[in-house]
Design a protein around this nucleic acid. Sequence first.
DNA 1: AATTTTGCTTAACGGTGTTAAAAAAACCTA
DNA 2: TAGGTTTTTTTAACACCGTTAAGCAAAATT
Lengths: 202, 202
Amino acid sequence: MGTIERKQRLKEEVRCRILDASWQIVQEEGWHALSMRKIADAIEYTAPIIYGYFENKDAILREFTQRGYQILSKTVKEARDQHTDPAEQMEAMWLAYWDFGYEHQAYYQLMYGVSVDCCQQEKMIPEAEETLNLLNETLGKLMAQSKHREQEDHCRRFYTFWSVVHGLISLNIVRKSSSLSLETNRSILFEAIHAIIADIKG
Amino acid sequence: MGTIERKQRLKEEVRCRILDASWQIVQEEGWHALSMRKIADAIEYTAPIIYGYFENKDAILREFTQRGYQILSKTVKEARDQHTDPAEQMEAMWLAYWDFGYEHQAYYQLMYGVSVDCCQQEKMIPEAEETLNLLNETLGKLMAQSKHREQEDHCRRFYTFWSVVHGLISLNIVRKSSSLSLETNRSILFEAIHAIIADIKG
DNA sequence: AATTTTGCTTAACGGTGTTAAAAAAACCTA
DNA sequence: TAGGTTTTTTTAACACCGTTAAGCAAAATT
């Protein structure tokens, strides 16, 4: 009866195949294209058997979410451990954080709810570009007051503004349960915006 | 027959009712719960008639996306027009931008692909909190070197870091077509992180 | 009044996640 | 090896989804 171990091994292998197949589908077609039947097809089974390995589809997504956080955690920790000075550590850690998001976009989408299948028609909607133009225009005037002339510089400043504001909004929406107070949000905004403006003014 | 105008009016009214019903469903249950059949139920019709008013479900979402951008554009413009100094304008505009995201979360989700139905189990995944703890810990050491003592301050600094990094990643993912170069991303990151660290050091 | 046009519904197709029953395969025992 | 038990896998079904085509009934036109 040693076969029980062999069965355990086979069961574990099928579990891996489910995750491997899922990951491949996601990489090729995105999260929206991941379905139980498609996974089953890929591992040459029928859909219901997956429920012997995962409670439901959400459990599969949860597995990947967990993997994402594990990789992120490991990455950030390693970045920290290559420095001793807290300031250098801080820099390395956030850079590592960004690198993770840049390299593992599929993970990041899942972990932080960044759905990609939206507003591709941004250029179809005039008001979308109009808003960006308004902000860009004013930024141009502001930078003209100083001696910034390069387009590159303009682009960077703009995205710095945009990133902090968009990031703050997004984090508030996604982390609805443990989100910040209105006052905290506003003071972060004020400080960040003023800092950027001050930096532009030189 | 002047009835043609009356019919036009009725058709327009049904279109409005579709959008009103859709919006109510979204407010009550979120975007994921919006379905053609549910909309039809709400306006006391059957699903296929909706296709007489909108090409498909995506067209309905596009309508709301457009509305969102219209409101945002109007808001930002109004904020600008209450000031004359570019620096003041810039501040007012980004604050208005944030206010929009805070007040109209449903719109913002649609416009920038912030799906809320994710990672609510963040606390279920130890590694998720571990990453935040690592970053918080190092930030604590960094701030201890200066004379920052308040918890409030700590929280603000942390979210400033997080917002700009998360925002930068998200914008890159969502605006995949017109995203920034790796060099631009890194220089934004470097500048922002160094600025925050410098500010902490005083 | 008969006919055309319009508005709406029913039915259907292919897809989704998920569950229960049926079938097939594997296993164990006699 | 034969028969019965257990495990594995599939088929069928349910309730949804977006979407399209056909059918029907009411309204408008001739």
